[in-house]
Amino acid sequence: MRQFIKHRGIAAPLLEPNIDTDIIIPSREMKRVSKEGLGEGAFANRRYTLPGGRDPNPDFVLNQAAYKDASIILAGANFGCGSSREHAVWALTDLGIRAVIAPGFGHIFYNNCFSSGLLPLILGAAEIAEIAAATESDPQRRQVEIDLENCEVAVGDKRFSFTIEAANRDMLLNGLDRIGQTLLLADEITAFESADRARRGWAYID
């Protein structure tokens, strides 16, 4: 999994509350047998003029030249609420998003982020508004910097600190997803298995 230590990027504002997973990726865009390539369907109902179509809607922020190559989303409360579809996270990462900064997240979406190297970062709505205001005049140049080691967000001369659970932060800093974390216990698992085979040999298929 991709590590997240420090990231500097263009921040796009999507500040309305309750952007749910269906807005992040509508179910009809989830037809692939893969986690890859879902970026095309990200925000499809807003990004394109027609349902199922691919003509860009010029009003949607990520279609605007000023926010080209945005890698950070500045969001409103309860981002990622709604259905548990993990595709929402995959769609964002495939689109090149590395972090979403919001006052709060849907809890399943929040947990899913860490499995895919996406940083869900919590700041107050007022702080997020300040960041949006500080970048707005020239988003391409006035980029936002996130420092996960020091738990700090910076834009221009403004600095904001944030908190995050230690276990989740470690996962991102080390680029370890949950599988990687468990594999650190490979010896313990093997030891369990050999002891268990002695007890329950019938349960194993060779």
Binding site: E86, N112, R178, I179, L183, A186, I189, E193
Partner: peptide, 11 residues
Amino acid sequence: TDAEHALATKT
């Protein structure tokens, strides 16, 4: 994703 976890770690 949990299915991947189970396949890759047996746990």
